[in-house]
Amino acid sequence: MKRRILVTGGAGFIGSNLCERLVENEKNEVYSLDNYFTGSEKNHIEGVKYIKGSTAEVSELIDFAPDVIYHLGEYSRVEQSFDDIETVWRFNKDGIFSILEFVRKTGAKLIYAGSSTKFGDGGLGRSQSPYAWTKASNTELVENYGKWFNIPYAIVYFYNVYGKREIATGKYATLIALFAEKMRKGESLTVVSPGAQKRNFTHIDDIVDGLVLVGEHGYGDEFGIGSPESYSVLEIAQMFGGPIEMLPQRQGNRMSADVVTDKTEALGWSAKRSVREYIATLQSVNWVLK
């Protein structure tokens, strides 16, 4: 019998890379549920079965009982969440309730992607934006469902992911891809003031390594998947080497976040890739994302 794995957000940046890894194992039957808000059909992986729709409707859309659900399909931008608060609520709050009810009925193991903003600025980060609060409170709901209904779960936390299939343009672009695109176009690199805000940039392959490991062996909260290397946003811009334009400060922009990786490392995980080396690789191919 093959193991049925459902990845919500499977056509997105992180989800597509996870699907690509999971489908390599012939023992896995991999499904994606995505509403294509930031996901793309360009990210489809051969061998993965794709279902289009909202996680809030998971019970109507999925007619089988998965063995594992990786719930990555939520709204995931800090600064934009102030303008998109209705969308944030629909994707993150309505979605998690439906997913948890589906898990309760099917007995699947849930791997929930929390947000490292929860640990930002000594814990204050959890309430600094609509995005951060919904993600932090969702982790509490997952924990409570585990206690109330004895569902198996693990909660993972990502730290500023970069790599293959990053979004490079538009208001949902991620930083490394955005900077590479600006360098390719000969534009200034825009850095939100003060520029000293620290981030632990983590390669997508390290993220997927951790996700697969936690999916197989992890139970409980605080499975952080983040590089121990910390750089300010201004330092990252300086690594790219282009002209820098400072932008005004923005609401919700945390200065730092604790990297909580002890439980993931105890499973045998470690970060193996360096953002400095990745930027140098992009430079060698004229800022073309790989």
Rank of each mutant, 00 (worst) to 15 (best):
G252F: 01
N253A: 13
A108Q: 10
M1N: 05
F201A: 04
L124E: 15
F97Y: 11
S127P: 01
V214N: 10
N92E: 10
R199C: 02
N25P: 00
S16D: 05
I176S: 12
T202I: 08
V103L: 07
R126F: 04
E29M: 00
K2R: 01
G210C: 09
I279K: 08
I96Q: 07
I99Q: 05
L175M: 15
G9Y: 11
D34M: 12
Y278H: 05
R199P: 01
D206M: 13
T264K: 08
A154L: 09
D258E: 15
G73M: 06
F179P: 07
L247V: 03
E245N: 10
K272T: 12
D262V: 07
V161W: 10
N200K: 08
G125Y: 09
V212H: 11
K164N: 12
F149H: 14
S188K: 15
G95S: 11
Y112T: 09
R4A: 09
N150F: 02
K185N: 14
G163T: 01
V7R: 10
F37V: 02
K109P: 00
L18G: 00
V48S: 11
R165D: 07
Q283D: 13
V156S: 04
K105I: 06
S256K: 07
I207W: 03
G241H: 10
T169K: 15
Q238W: 05
V142N: 07
R165T: 01
K2Q: 00
S188V: 10
Y50R: 04
R90T: 12
N28P: 00
L247S: 14
K109G: 00
V48W: 05
S129L: 03
L72T: 12
Y172W: 14
L175H: 07
L211P: 13
S54W: 04
V7H: 12
E24P: 02
R126E: 03
G15I: 00
A237K: 03
Y157N: 13
L100K: 06
